[in-house]
Design a protein around this nucleic acid. Structure first.
Lengths: 188, 188
DNA sequence: GAACACAAACCGTCTGGTCGGTACAAAAGA
DNA sequence: TCTTTTGTACCGACCAGACGGTTTGTGTTC
């Protein structure tokens, strides 16, 4: 695969991601992706033979990005639970690396993709199942699950903008979650 | 509006709800709803002039059901936070009223509707915003928000079947959430 | 018999996907 | 070195099916 081909593929994935994030999943049509990417529909279909192939590629790239971010947080010394919490709020905790927040925003936007067709969720399901299994073996599995669920719920709430609390309260919630995650990691 | 008309309307709403829950939102077409309801598409459009009108009716009915259930829980003496927790797990706590669990399952399925089009979420948003405001004025707003987020996250996890823990762990999580909710209600 | 409650054929649009063709560069042959 | 062939990347017109909605017709109820 040539470099030119790779660049075009990334452009297409970027365009599709952009559409999902800014216009919503129901505007994600092949014509729109091609238009945003500045490439013809024929060109799009040349690289991704079907819409499904395109979506698969998007999910895989996002998955990879998330894994990399989580791994880098663990390399910085955070335990598995605390690293998971920080995954959700890197921007607030480290404003200097604002770019990676994009990953989280992407992840949120992609929930809509999973919501529309469980097929795409299945691609991720196995990895997530394996990942969350470790959370059942911490010093306090119940509290760990509560932390995990709370983060996922917060994600939903923020994405749909339903019952969003004042910023200070949100910050306090995250602070307390980090605190507890830290304790759990220490005891584990 | 005649009784016959009302029965047909309920059949249509039931069919649409059934499709959303069992086939997913992208299979919710007017033809499919009509087919499942055993009524022609013309008949469907006679009662609900557009797909949007149908969806609005579905959301409104669900909203009503949820409100009624929450109110009945409060009438039984549960505080606002604990009643909210119990809303999510009535079947496990009271197997004898298994039917109302259906409401929760519906609610979960409908998240997909909101995911696809924020328009429908907006119909619910205002009420939910108002509802969640009281959670910011409890004895421990941070913990209350964590409880709320955790329940929403659990809902997501169960719906997409991602990282679902063993039943015992799930039960223990709910038990602890109820415990904390009870404390908060008592202190408030 | 008039309003109501449905049935069924039909229409226009949108969208995923096909297909024939072009541009161009690198390899192969002369 | 010049020509021919081949493979890659891309274009854009076109097609077929799906889907929301319309229209017209028919039976049912009061």
């Amino acid at each position: 695969m040539s470099n030119r081909s790779n660049i075009t593929k990334q452009k297409l994935l970027d365009a599709a991601t952009d559409i999902i994030m800014n216009q919503g999943i129901h505007h994600l049509t092949l014509d729109e992706v091609a238009k945003v990417a500045g490439i013809s529909k024929g060109g799009l279909l040349y690289h991704y033979a079907s819409k499904e192939a395109l979506l698969t590629a998007i999910v895989e790239r996002l998955q990879q990005e998330q894994n990399d971010l989580y791994a880098s947080l663990q390399r910085e010394g955070y335990g598995p639970v605390e690293a998971f919490v920080r995954l959700f709020d890197e921007t607030n905790l480290h404003p200097e690396r604002a770019t990676i927040q994009i990953d989280v925003e992407k992840m949120i936007a992609f929930l809509t993709l999973f919501a529309v067709d469980q097929e795409y969720a299945n691609r991720w399901k196995h990895d997530l199942d394996t990942f969350f299994e470790q959370f059942q073996k911490t010093a306090d599995p119940v509290e760990t699950m509560i932390i995990r669920y709370a983060l996922e719920g917060m994600m939903m709430s923020e994405h749909f903008e339903v019952g969003v609390p004042p910023v200070e309260l949100k910050q306090a919630v995250i602070a307390r979650l980090i605190e507890r995650a830290h304790d759990i990691d220490r005891q584990s």
